[in-house]
Simulated assay, not measured.
Amino acid sequence: MSIFAFMKLTLQLASIYNILWGAWVVIFPNHFFELVGMELPSQPMIWQGMGMVIAVFGLGYWWASYDALRHWPIVAVGFLGKVFGPLGFVLNYLEGKVPFEFFYTLITNDFIWWIPFFLILKNVHQDYNWKLKEK
């Protein structure tokens, strides 16, 4: 598989995943909490807002899949979210603000995408030199 096919497939899979996950959270905001035995949120609208943001990222990943090098800022923002999200979880968990069960969202939302997104950004660095526009 060429690097371009890899980037396209990665971003399209991330897109589909994000759109489905976001829709699930928006439509069934209590379902995740019920699955892992957590207390239901008192303000599900906040969780639904998170679902909407994740779904919108899915649209961005789909559009970026057509030319990942040119649309690398979308990939970079997604990668940063996938790094800072778990960091925020750790900090909040250590302060006792969030139960451990919330960790399960990090596996599919963040961790599995670290290496593929990193490889795309590595390719952007090596072959595209972080250009923001065509010259």
Rank of each mutant, 00 (worst) to 15 (best):
Y61K: 00
K122V: 01
F57L: 07
N92K: 07
G96Y: 10
L91A: 11
K133G: 05
L119A: 05
F32H: 12
W47M: 02
L35G: 02
Q43L: 03
V90H: 02
L119R: 10
P116Q: 05
F103S: 06
V75L: 02
L119P: 06
Y128Q: 09
I16Q: 02
H71D: 14
F84D: 13
Y104W: 14
W21Q: 12
L94N: 12
K8P: 04
G60P: 04
W113I: 03
L121A: 04
G60V: 02
V75R: 07
A68Y: 08
E134K: 13
I3S: 08
K82I: 01
V83S: 04
T108S: 04
F33R: 09
K131A: 11
T10R: 03
L69A: 08
Q12S: 06
I74D: 06
I19M: 14
L121R: 03
F117R: 04
I19D: 07
P29T: 12
F33T: 11
K8V: 02
Y93N: 07
M1H: 07
K131F: 02
I46N: 04
N30K: 09
V36P: 05
M1T: 13
K122R: 13
E39I: 05
A5P: 00
A14P: 04
W113H: 07
Y66K: 11
F102H: 10
F89A: 08
G96H: 11
I107C: 01
N123Q: 12
F84Q: 13
S15A: 12
Y93L: 12
I107D: 06
I27R: 09
F100G: 04
F102K: 03
A5T: 15
P41Q: 13
T105I: 07
W21N: 14
W24I: 05
H125Q: 12
W47E: 13
T105A: 03
G85R: 02
W21F: 11
P116L: 03
I112Q: 08
M7Q: 15
G85V: 03
V26T: 11
L132T: 15
L119G: 04
L69Y: 08
I54F: 02
F118K: 04
K8Y: 03
V53P: 00
W47V: 10
A23E: 09
I112Y: 01
W63S: 04
L13N: 13
W62E: 07
T10L: 01
E39H: 05
S42T: 14
L106Q: 13
V25K: 10
L13W: 13
L13H: 10
G49K: 01
S42G: 05
E134R: 10
L91I: 14
Y128K: 07
L132R: 13
L119C: 11
M38N: 09
T105L: 05
A14E: 15
I19F: 04
W113P: 08
F102S: 09
G81C: 06
V83R: 03
W24N: 14
L13Y: 14
Q126L: 05
A64S: 06
L11A: 08
L87Y: 12
P99F: 01
L35E: 15
F118R: 08
F103R: 06
V36M: 06
